[in-house]
Design a protein around this nucleic acid. Structure first.
Lengths: 332, 332
DNA sequence: ATTGCTCTTCACAACGTTGTAGAACGTGCT
DNA sequence: AGCACGTTCTACAACGTTGTGAAGAGCAAT
């Protein structure tokens, strides 16, 4: 049925180990032998059995990427770029969705599946600092995002605080003084929402503007719908605001929709800035000013980091922070 | 280091095969033995080596999903739903991006990686009818989309022609008579663009409206940018139109952006309908009327089909067509 | 001719699991 | 007691690959 090393060896008149050597580019094979084997490989359409190779060698050339939800544009684009970066290094990517569910994230870290891949890129949302010990697993692991679980684990993160501060300063520089937030997570400190709020407050402090809790629009999920609802709630509360800093682009688009539906002009009455620089803000109406948090570089560096750790588990843990930039469009 | 069946067996005082029997729920194990083994498993934190299992049993409980580009919302949402459907059946999903490149699609079908998974869900774009024979591969395969390669291969498709006709009729029912198309692929017949154009023409014919080639806005890629460019080209050409049927939502959003930038009101001057019912049309400005082609059901039925074919390669090929519906919003 | 190299090839033993076949051990029936 | 039968457990042989070590071939230096 399917050809094995033995079948190729029989056809080429060599031992199966010699075929293995040819397949693996072992140098000490006579050119004539190599050619004979290669012809036999071609004739039989031989392809190595990756399960057997993986069993024997302990490597699968596959990594897992665990994200909360692939339908969120940020994670779709991240996954796209991770897959490309992995492919350049000969790796395939298996994608797991955790649905920002703490239990699912824990299950994932303990899964037998994890031992089938060489490494894991993990973008946790539901885990918290007390779960730090759980990320000390056998499989090479690179954490994406901000939650610093343990200094001994590789991290590739965006500069949440600094980037959020820059976004806020962008609004301040345009004369906005009453800046609402969409997407806050009350009480959270180390997650994206907590860190971005910290950057927001730092910018206000530096500008001498008092923090007003009524300007916070909480949104547990960061979908468009929740962004619209948070904006509606802000409007309904009667609080005065001339700008919105949404903690991601999806929220921003939802919020912008609600603002316009309520008769507010963007950016004239309310300026809106998002976060993530996903494709969907490029052609929205109006187009969305946003923070580019370096997603592409995160994907590239994360794959690089996990490859390095797979190659040598002993190296010092990396903690990479990529650069960010403001992408100005019509909404501010 | 990592526990194996042998380690567990030694601790429990049984043969390693008995441990295997416990792990695989083989019925004839004495309850007391079973418990002893389970305790040993728990104590050692034993987890089966999936490579070894896969080598021996020939099954990996993983499937591949091959899509053109994950950053396109349609495919991101499809992947999301495929992963969920697969997970319900105990399968993990490995994602490959083909970038709508014919060579990459061919490589994928011949890849050794393919033999590491139990099945493949494949959404081809670059392949054409002449590649039909290539999809006759050993790995269970389900084709997504419209290109019918070979009647012997499982297909799960949307009703492109009928749904596109319904979209066009939706515009006609609102009194639109000059309906432009965005996203056509000149000369194509069996792809999504060709089939949707066929539905468009059928609706025009039935309404007694002559087909006007000048109303076709070609767009090779179906991204927002190409949608905007196609709409700009239509406007620049000076052709009169009061509606746009974009062949997917991403194109529609780009086109809508260009229309509004050019001073046309949507839907007053130009009605816009998309195709796919992706999340990003729900909160656009204005919100986007679109065709829901049954993406969720496609994911579910496709996973179901591949599971069935994995279980029994002899069954008759399935050819599933899922239902569609019009989702009316503000843009028409 | 012998020794000591290097290059080339091969035999064998893993890797950790599941399938097959059969042994050991009851239990119930004659 | 003897036998048949079902239950419970085990020994052994794969699955297809890579790593190890050693054997054989060829060649230069002694």
């Amino acid at each position: 049925m399917v050809a094995t090393l033995h079948d190729v060896a029989r056809l080429a008149g060599v031992s199966f180990k010699t075929v293995s050597n040819v397949v693996n580019d072992y140098p000490h094979v006579r050119p004539s032998t190599r050619q004979r084997v290669q012809e036999a490989i071609a004739e039989l359409g031989y392809q190595p059995n990756l399960s057997a190779r993986s069993l024997r060698s302990g490597r699968s050339d596959a990594i897992s990427l665990a994200v909360p939800e692939l339908r969120l544009p940020y994670f779709a684009e991240l996954a796209d770029e991770v897959i490309r970066a992995a492919e350049r290094r000969g790796l395939v990517v298996l994608i797991e969705q955790t649905n920002r569910d703490r239990q699912r994230e824990l299950d994932l870290l303990g899964s037998a599946r994890l031992r089938m891949v060489d490494g894991l890129l993990f973008s946790p949302l539901g885990l918290s600092a007390e779960d730090a010990s759980l990320v000390e697993i056998d499989t090479p692991l690179v954490l994406l995002g901000e939650r610093i679980f343990h200094p001994s684990v590789d991290h590739v993160t965006m500069q949440n605080v600094a980037a959020a501060r820059a976004a806020t300063e962008h609004l301040l520089a345009r004369g906005r003084r009453r800046i609402a937030v969409v997407g806050s997570h009350p009480g959270e400190v180390i997650g994206s929402a907590g860190l971005r709020l910290q950057g927001y407050r730092a910018a206000l402090d530096a500008a001498g503007i008092p923090f007003d809790e009524r300007l916070l629009g909480p949104a547990e999920l960061w979908h468009r719908r929740e962004g619209a609802e948070a904006a509606q709630a802000l409007i309904a509360s009667g609080v005065d605001f001339d700008a919105v800093f949404a903690f991601n682009d999806t929220l921003a688009l939802g919020a912008m929709h609600a603002l316009i539906a309520a008769g507010r002009r963007v950016p004239d009455d309310v300026a809106v800035i998002g976060f993530d620089n996903t494709d969907d803000g490029m052609f929205s109406q109006p187009t969305l000013t946003t923070v580019d948090p370096g997603r592409r570089e995160i994907a590239e560096r994360a794959v690089e980091a996990v490859v390095q750790r797979i190659a040598d588990r002993g190296i010092a843990p990396q903690h990479v922070e990529v650069g960010y930039s403001i992408v100005q469009r019509e909404s501010t």
